[in-house]
Structures are given as C-alpha cells and as structure tokens.
C-alpha cells in the first residue's frame, strides 16, 4: 500500500509533541501533531524521519492507528544520541518530521487469507498499525494471529492493549518472554516456539514478521517448517538512513533501497541477503 509523498520530501515540517508516555524502561511513545498539514495519512509499516533540532534525524516507524492520521504516533527506544533526545521530548517540544516513507505491510493483498503477525521486542510497534487496520476490517480476513516475544515480562510493549486483544474471540494472541521470575505465569521461551501452537492454514496464510534480524531468520524458518510459502512471508528491515527517498544509497541492501523499496520486503526478495554478514 503506497500513499502520496509530501511536496518537498527533504524538508522537515516543524511540529510539536502532544503527549509522551513511557512504555517500558527505555521506550516511550510520542504523539505528534501531523506537522504542516491537518493530517498526514500513512500506510501500516511506513516510517517518518524525525528530526531533533541540533541533534539529528532518524527513521522511526509509525506505531499508531492509520485511521487517525491527524495524530502521528511513534514508539521510540532510546539507544543512542538521537533516539535518546527524541524519547526525552516532553509535550510542546519541537520536532521536525518528514514522511511518511516506504512500502508498508501488504494488508490489502492479505485480505481473504489467514494473517500471522510475529513481533519480537520493539518490532511490535511497526506491526501495530497493521493489526489496527486488519481489526477494523476484520470480516475481510481469515484467522488472525499475533505472536509476540519480549525479553522479560517487564519489557512487554503495549501490555494493556495486548490484554484487550487477548480477550477478543476473533484474534489469537500468544505472548512469550525469553526469561522471567517465578511470578510470571505466561509462557517462557523464544517467540518462534509459538508458531507451532498457533492455528492457521499454512497453505493460505500471509505472515508479517518484525523484530531483530536474528529473530526474524528463526521466525522464517519456523513458518517454513509449519508449511507457509516463502512468497507469503514479509519482513520489515532496518538499515541506517539519510535521505529516505532513494537518493543517497545509505540504506542499500544489495540491489534494494530499504527506504524506498522497503522497509517491508518480501522474504523472496531478500532471502539471499538476509544471512550475509555484511552488505
């Protein structure tokens, strides 16, 4: 799904933070004004370039509801200078925004099929808009499954929302953590262990996978073992970016520009590149 790009894609539109909420220890969700326009429509899986004045600019996925484009929701993990500065911005703070950019999850093409979403860690953020999209058109899809792996119970993102989703009868939600204390009564083990437990028709399933690259490789292996066709597996790739519009070559991944052709790419397209140490 592709939406039109803003008029000058290299110029950040000044905007401001509306709200800031802590999700887990190092991760915050920021709601921004759309910046320069009344709304900034986006497709699930797309990203914005967010510019912290005087610090720098980084790609951050949209993690909110695509049905509410008047609010740009981003979930940011503070890992380095820019993300730390971004995550620290409070209400009314100024931010520059360019975007939305890239190709998102093929939510339209998946209609009619079962959909399995596999998220690891922060990977749930770029997948959340796809789930909002699917749930708002629930009757158009077959079985819908969300499999989510986090590091520990304290690292589970969007916990309240996960609990709400878990109560739905038209959505199968399974959560696991890599390790836990003895007060955790949920599953412990890697996210890919959840694949054989989920109910879906492997011959008629589209899978969306987002998380650290190692986890995605294992998830693809588990999906293939379950009988899912590799042509029906999509991954969201992360590469360093500068222009975000396919000009600078910074994000090149073999012949693919992650900013323009991705970040969501079919496994078929990148299978030869995924396991290479350096591109």
């Amino acid at each position: 799904m592709r939406l039109s790009m803003p008029s000058d894609p290299m110029r950040p539109a000044p905007t401001r933070v509306l709200t800031r909420r802590r999700e887990v220890a190092d991760t915050w969700t920021l709601e921004l004004e759309p910046g320069g326009t009344a709304e900034r429509p986006f497709a699930p899986g797309q990203f914005n370039m967010l510019y912290v004045f005087g610090v720098g600019e980084i790609p951050i996925s949209l993690s909110g509801d695509p049905a509410s484009p008047h609010r740009q929701v981003h979930t940011v993990r503070a890992v380095g200078p820019v993300s730390r500065a971004l995550a620290a911005l409070g209400p009314d703070a100024a931010v520059g925004v360019r975007g939305p950019f890239g190709q998102g999850w093929p939510v339209e093409a998946a209609a009619g099929a079962d959909v399995v979403l596999i998220a690891g860690g922060l990977g749930l953020a770029p997948l959340r808009p796809a789930l909002y999209y699917i749930l708002s058109r629930r009757a158009r899809y077959g079985r819908v499954v969300l499999l989510y792996g986090a590091r520990s119970p304290g690292d589970i993102l969007f916990r309240r929302e996960l609990e709400r989703w878990r109560r739905r009868t038209d959505l199968e939600v399974r959560v696991t953590v890599d390790h836990a204390g003895s007060d955790w009564l949920g599953r412990v083990g890697v996210a890919t262990n959840l694949v054989p437990l989920a109910s879906f028709d492997p011959g008629d399933t589209v899978a969306f996978v987002c998380g650290p690259e190692v986890m995605m490789r294992f998830a693809v292996a588990a999906l293939r073992e379950a009988g899912v066709d590799t042509a029906a597996i999509y991954l969201s790739m992360e590469r360093n970016m500068k222009c975000a519009i396919g000009h600078c070559g910074h994000c090149q991944f073999g012949p693919t520009f992650v900013c323009k052709d991705g970040p969501v790419l079919s496994f078929e397209r990148i299978r030869g590149l995924l396991s290479r140490k350096e591109i």
Binding site: G120, G121, L122, G149, R151, D178, V190, G211, M215
Partner: peptide, 8 residues
C-alpha cells in the same frame, strides 16, 4: 537465541 539476547 536466548543467549544472543536479541532484544537486549
């Protein structure tokens, strides 16, 4: 995968 601590 757990040892790699991929979400760390």
């Amino acid at each position: 995968m757990q040892i790699l601590d991929v979400y760390g």
